[in-house]
Amino acid sequence: MSEEPIIAIRGLRTQFGSQVIHDNLDLEVRRGEVIGIVGGSGTGKSVLLRTIIGLIRPKAGEIRVFGENLAAMEATERRRFEQRWGVLFQDGALFSSLTVAQNIEVPLKEHLKLPPALSDQLAALKISMVGLAANAGPKYPSELSGGMRKRAGLARALAMDPEIVFLDEPTAGLDPIGAAAFDELIRRLQQTLGLTVFMVTHDLDSLHAICDRIAVLAEKKVLVVGDMAEMLRQDHPWIREYFHGPRARAALGEAGRAEGDD
């Protein structure tokens, strides 16, 4: 059972009007791994994420999550599966009229009949788990910094104890220290909660620090999937440029350079 991929995409085609974003795209995500999706601007990384979670309808192809084809399901049944994943949007996408704690309670109140005291306790627990101070709970999103909003968004994504977490550029807009701390947080939560993490990112440091595998999106499909060492061995010009450029060298340090030169 654990052999079966938790997300399996086959022959996916997405297009807006006449503009084809993905064509015949295949990708498998294994249970319990952290997969990083990279690609140039406009290659449809975020579109892929949104297609998997059902915000965009594909033109063709099949997406199986938890072994089920969600697109073919009734809306009510699909909603049950949707509770098994959490999504962190780029800037947190917190509801601005609710406090952080209330934001986290939204899915709990919507989907479960929990006693109010318990749902308050669980919200406080999630706030603490993502590394926010207790005084962030009664604050409104507009009173938080970008990094805190992301943490709060992550707490909301984790509210229903999901199996998969989708992260859209989790470290974009954070300072390097904040980004490193966020990487570490994701890694720690992934390990303690046994999560599968699907992460769209540009951050070479994150890729290096926390991703088990990396999928490169180019030419409308997934070009290669593999770990960092495999990326460094690739000959495709874009991948070479990406993983051997000056920024990559800095991020990967000595190890990367040695491997890249051979």
């Binding site: 709970g137 390990q191 303690t192």
Partner: peptide
Amino acid sequence: DILLREVAGNDNPCEIEPP
């Protein structure tokens, strides 16, 4: 056990709404 330790380490009650 990992989960229990995680939870125990994060027992920080907080307010839900501003006073």
